[in-house]
Simulated scan of single mutants.
Amino acid sequence: MRCPLQSAQCGSLSEASFLGRHLTLRQLRCFIAVAEELHFGRAAMRLCVDQSPLSRTIRELEEELGAKLFVRTTRRTELTLAGERLVAAVPRVFRAIDQARDAVRAAVTGREGELRVGLAGSVPAARLAALMAACSQEAPQIKLLFVEVLPEDLPGRLVDGDFDVGLSQVVQPCEALLVRPAWVEGIHVVMRIGHALSMRRRVGIEDLAHLPIVLGDGQLPPVTMNSLEAELRTAAADALQLQHAKTFELLIALVASGHAVSLMNACCAKTYRCEGVVSRPVNCTPRTITTWLVRRREDASEAVARFEQHVLARRCRHPSRG
């Protein structure tokens, strides 16, 4: 019986075999991951998904194509002849879709291209602004599109192709993604000039435990915020004077007036410094906050490479220095 995925020319997949099919890019990406790993567990880890939904996606793809793509036993997973034909055809499908998508974007935007950046967590605004300016100056034909996402959603959306690159302060392991440290910031206490702690070069967490403290929403990653609060509560013996400000204007007003001190990453502390306010590094756990650059491991596009160069070139610079 002739395999439904086999075309008239042996070893290729004809365009006609896709007619009437309702295949999705996600199904094809899942298929390629399993075909390359020949192991559903490793493929699920590579795609940053659970094994159960991955198996369900492969079953749906097999039902749509009317062919078994894998033979699974308790010891191993192997491709069927139909699976081998699909492995050979999928790269051509991806290339055609990428070309069509790029052509449509160019027609709609009137630009040569677009770089979609996913932002997860409290990415320092000053560094982000400097990065945007540098990229726009060097390649004005590339439109930068920044979209905020939840940290737990970023890996999957990168793998699915929703974003070209991501910046995140929370990293989840995923074999399909390449992760590199972009910016490392210390944690600073911000206070009014003349405050007793402003005379010190560094401030200990125990020095802050009995002071009124205001923390801004989004100023620190949630994991860092929770760790700092726990450390402060331990040092204060549950007598911590802590409040949260929804706006930066309220936070800085409380600090500048001497009503409270605040904690934020060093970049924000230096950038938002106003008259009457100073900052000092804090000895705490963790001592630093890292913003990570995340992209698909196999992505070799020039736009992503240039963006990565701009990010890494600014690892040791304060944003105000360009």
Rank of each mutant, 00 (worst) to 15 (best):
V277I: 14
E298T: 13
D162L: 05
V149G: 06
S12F: 14
N226V: 08
R76A: 15
V179T: 15
R200H: 12
S262P: 03
V123Q: 07
Y272P: 00
G118S: 12
I289H: 06
A107F: 00
A236M: 05
G166C: 08
V282C: 03
E152H: 14
E114L: 08
R42S: 13
E298G: 01
L178C: 12
V304H: 04
H259R: 14
V255T: 14
E36N: 14
L293Y: 03
D102S: 07
G258C: 10
V159Y: 03
E185K: 01
P319G: 05
R2F: 00
L158A: 06
L19A: 11
A196K: 12
V117R: 08
F31M: 06
E275S: 13
W292M: 02
A300L: 06
G166L: 08
V149Y: 05
A256S: 15
W292P: 01
V87N: 02
D164P: 09
T224S: 13
E206G: 00
T24P: 03
N283T: 00
H210L: 15
G66E: 12
F40K: 10
R201S: 14
V171P: 08
C48K: 06
R75M: 03
A96T: 07
S168V: 09
K246F: 09
G194E: 12
M264L: 12
F248G: 07
H195L: 09
R75L: 09
V277H: 05
L131P: 01
A88G: 07
F40M: 15
F94D: 08
T24Q: 04
L215Y: 03
V165E: 05
R202I: 08
V108K: 13
A96E: 05
L263Y: 10
R287D: 14
L197I: 02
R287Y: 01
P4W: 06
M45Y: 11
L251D: 00
S14A: 15
F70W: 05
A125V: 11
T109H: 06
H39G: 08
G110T: 02
V49P: 00
V261I: 13
L119S: 11
F307K: 03
M264K: 02
L79K: 09
L240S: 05
K246H: 09
L28K: 10
P140W: 05
R200I: 00
I193G: 02
C268I: 01
F70V: 03
W183R: 02
I289Y: 04
A182D: 01
P151T: 04
A82D: 07
E298H: 12
S52V: 09
G322L: 15
